[in-house]
């Protein structure tokens, strides 16, 4: 067993886990943060996306021991029972999610994108979300939700898409 200490959503948490435990498994089964989902378990679907020291990573592809001492932000770190995070609010307002399974990953990837503090285009959003699969919605509403959240949080406007020349 390995003792692993993480800073999850600002709180220091320790658990003793077998070395082959992934960060995702430790979060869900040892620390009871079940917001991050186990989807494909091979890094294709992004349902397990969390931020590690601010970067979006697939928690299924990192050993808990590799995350020792690092700051982890999960979906539970965004909202309180009283108040949604603006990304969650935007996703709800446009009905971005249907079954919701991909939601925590989509929202954490969106958080990392907006936190970069760079101007964002629609293409940047598609690129950023290419590692998060949704099998319900077809992505249109999700991208709308990201745009709304980006504009709400940063106060910036997404560049208009120029109509193609006739």
């Amino acid at each position: 067993m390995t003792d692993v200490t993480l800073i999850v959503n600002g709180e220091t948490k320790t658990a003793s886990v077998p070395p082959e435990t992934t960060l995702l498994k430790m979060l869900r089964e040892d620390l009871n943060y079940t917001g991050s989902k186990l989807g494909c378990d091979v890094g294709d679907c992004g349902a397990c996306t969390v931020l590690v020291d601010g970067l979006a990573v697939n928690a299924c592809l990192m050993l808990a021991g590799q995350a020792e001492g690092k700051e982890i932000l999960t979906i539970e770190g965004l909202s309180t029972l009283e108040k949604y995070h603006p990304i969650q609010k935007a996703f709800e307002d446009v009905a971005a999610l249907q079954c919701g399974f991909c939601g925590p990953g989509m929202i954490m990837t969106t958080k990392a994108l907006i936190d970069q503090d760079e101007d964002v285009t629609r293409q940047n959003i598609k690129d950023a979300l290419s590692g998060n699969l949704c099998r319900c919605t077809g992505y249109t509403k999700i991208i709308e939700g990201v745009i709304d959240a980006y504009q709400e949080i940063t106060g910036k406007k997404l560049p208009e898409i120029k109509p193609r020349a006739a």
């Binding site: 992004g46 970067l55 979006a56 697939n58 990192m62 990392a112 690129d127 290419s130 590692g131």
Partner: peptide
């Protein structure tokens, strides 16, 4: 290479 999650690790 992969998606942003892959490139970060």
């Amino acid at each position: 290479v992969g998606a942003v999650q892959t490139r970060n690790l």
